[in-house]
Amino acid sequence: MLSQFDYVKPLVLDEALDVLSRDTDTYILAGGTDLLIMLRHELINARHILDIKAIPELKVFSYVEGKGLEIGANVVVNKLIESEVVRDNYKALHDAASCLASYQLRNRATLVGNICNASPGADLPPALLIYNATVKIASKDGVRTVPLKEFFTGVKKTQLTKHELVVSVFLPEPGQDDDSCYLRQTRLKGHDLSTVGVACRIDKNGKACIGINAVAITPLRLTALEDELNAKGITEESILWAADEIKNHIRPISDVRSSKEYRLHMAGVLFKRCMMQLMDKEA
């Protein structure tokens, strides 16, 4: 390891924010499943490691009926999979969490880490985007909340500054008669990152929401397509139309996982499968 860092593990949030306000070469450690790889490959040179696992505020995992679900920065992915609240209310998130990496990694990897790492192909963001997730960010100067949609700014880039920390992600209550799912395509069955992943939701008013990853520099919510689709009304016909139209709303590239053409094609296929699955359940 190239980095020669020291290690700080505060017990209170304020101290963590203090540490972050002092230096810019501090890296936040929660599950470490991305950070340790970056350290190992010498992609970053960390001088200070801030372990946030002992901070009580960041362990929050609480669902308030009528309000929604708050998921703290220390909540690991396996906890989401085991949660009945997630399975019953945010099905796409349950699906997405279940296909993330391996059991061992999910014991460490956190949801907040997954969004902070901001990989365009990360599995959890599409499922969070369709539920209008918001991100609670804290720094010495106070707390701010931003929609997840605006949180991502580029490949591995977010609007988080070096002095800030994500406290939690909040998912508003979806209410009754709301359903969603997440499907992804990978090169091999197992622990690959997705080639394309699509999350769809039909809310209580019968409106569709669409989230997608690995087809642009950030995970996307396809609001323009949603509007057109919802204006048409959700029918088999309009779903087929949107499955074809989706290619005009995404800008995938070719890389080791897939060609651009295959991504464009699979986005439509996965979208159609998701929507059909949701329609079937309704019928």
């Binding site: 593990k9 450690l29 470490g32 340790l36 790889i37 190992r40 372990d51 391996s102 990694l105 460490r108």
Partner: peptide, 29 residues
């Protein structure tokens, strides 16, 4: 592999299977 892909380094930490190649020793305090 040294990066969480193969599981050869799996140990049980506080009852949970984890890959010890992606954990700092001091995290096991």
């Amino acid at each position: 592999c040294g990066e969480g892909e193969c599981g050869a380094c799996t140990v049980i930490l506080n009852g949970e299977a984890v890959t010890s190649c992606l954990i700092l020793a001091i995290e096991a305090q």
